[in-house]
């Protein structure tokens, strides 16, 4: 099966214009070989971001969608109405595209399907290089892992700890929004939609909160947590061979064999994610337990080690 990267690179070379549908993972819109818009169910869309900040009503968005045509894209209509400046629209589209693409490229099990000539109602507001997009995704993934190397909390409800393990805590404005909106049932993706903030930013805030020891794992959630639509899955079979990390035990290792040690934090992250999402396929991994005391112990150990240095 052709990978998203191959298909996109081919379309960029052909200077194609149209929409690349990636099944449930989302849709990429191209203009002259550049990506100009992207939508993924895992990330809030441009109109969601605009509506959430109260700048524009759903009604105005629908009106602009209907009124737009080839000559006057919806984005230009919104700017002409004076609801936002060109710079704000560009920044909003830019953020929304990078956000959607991050959750799109890793999503497995879709067959890329290109429909030439299909346009996004906003029209091109910002032109992205295909290689640049892939680099940005890689950079974002590294940033997440550097912040807190476990993907365990990424798809679980966000639950702040009742008591803070410090005398004083400094939060960024987004971290505050996450904590204030967390109701012990909303996952980071749900929070992003509710807050009208990019899903990646919320995910990063959640990992930062986890790293500071301010979140706890909801009891009994690990094994039951379903993977959200379009969330990056970590099963080795679905990933292109080049991206597979060699340090891991091959999946054909006999069941019951001792799990070999994996190199680096990425390995741990993958192991946790696989244990959570694909129970049954990865029998060579120790079973993931839902015991929050394990995680709390690890967090405390880590904090203690950091305090030493």
């Amino acid at each position: 099966m052709p990978t998203t990267e191959n298909v996109l690179n081919g379309l960029a070379e052909d200077r194609a214009t149209g929409a690349l549908h990636l099944g449930g993972a989302g849709t990429l819109y191209l203009t002259g070989g550049h990506v100009t818009c992207a939508e993924s169910p895992a990330a809030p869309r441009v109109e969601d971001l605009l509506a959430a900040c109260g700048r524009i009503s759903d009604h105005a968005v629908r009106q602009a969608m209907r009124a737009q045509d080839e000559g006057r894209p919806g984005g230009e209509l919104l700017v002409a109405q004076g609801v936002l400046t060109k710079g704000e629209l560009e920044f909003c589209v830019l953020g929304a595209v990078l956000d959607a693409v991050y959750f799109m490229f890793d999503a497995p099990g879709h067959r890329p399907w290109f429909r030439p000539g299909e346009r996004h109602w906003l029209g091109p507001q910002w032109y992205f290089d295909v290689t640049g997009l892939f680099q940005e995704c890689k950079r974002r993934r590294t940033q997440l892992d550097r912040t807190w190397p476990s993907a365990e909390l990424d798809s679980l409800p966000v639950v702040p700890v009742g008591r803070v393990p410090a005398q004083r805590v400094v939060l960024t404005s987004l971290q505050w929004e996450v904590v204030a909106c967390a109701d012990s049932t909303a996952t980071p993706a749900d929070l992003a939609h509710r807050l009208g903030r990019p899903a990646y930013s919320v995910l990063l805030a959640v990992r930062q909160l986890a790293a500071a020891g301010l979140l706890r794992v909801p009891r009994g959630e690990i094994a039951a947590a379903p993977a959200p639509p379009g969330a990056p899955s970590e099963t080795p079979e679905e990933r292109p061979a080049a991206e597979r990390r060699d340090a891991r035990v091959p999946p054909e290792a006999p069941a019951g064999a001792l799990p070999r040690r994996v190199a680096g934090v990425r390995g741990i992250r993958d192991a946790v994610a696989e244990g959570a999402h694909t129970s049954g396929t990865a029998q060579w991994l120790p079973p993931a337990t839902g015991d929050p005391t394990d995680v709390n112990l690890l967090i405390r150990l880590r904090n203690a080690l950091e305090a030493l240095t």
Binding site: F91, L94, G95, L98, Q135, E136, R139, R140, Q143, L174, P198, Y200, S201, L204
Partner: peptide, 20 residues
């Protein structure tokens, strides 16, 4: 873009500048 640390746009002629 501060939250994600993304270089949105760059200007100037410094070839040694790694914007990312």
């Amino acid at each position: 873009d501060q939250t994600s640390g993304t270089a949105v746009a760059t200007g100037g002629g410094n070839r040694h500048l790694d914007a990312e």
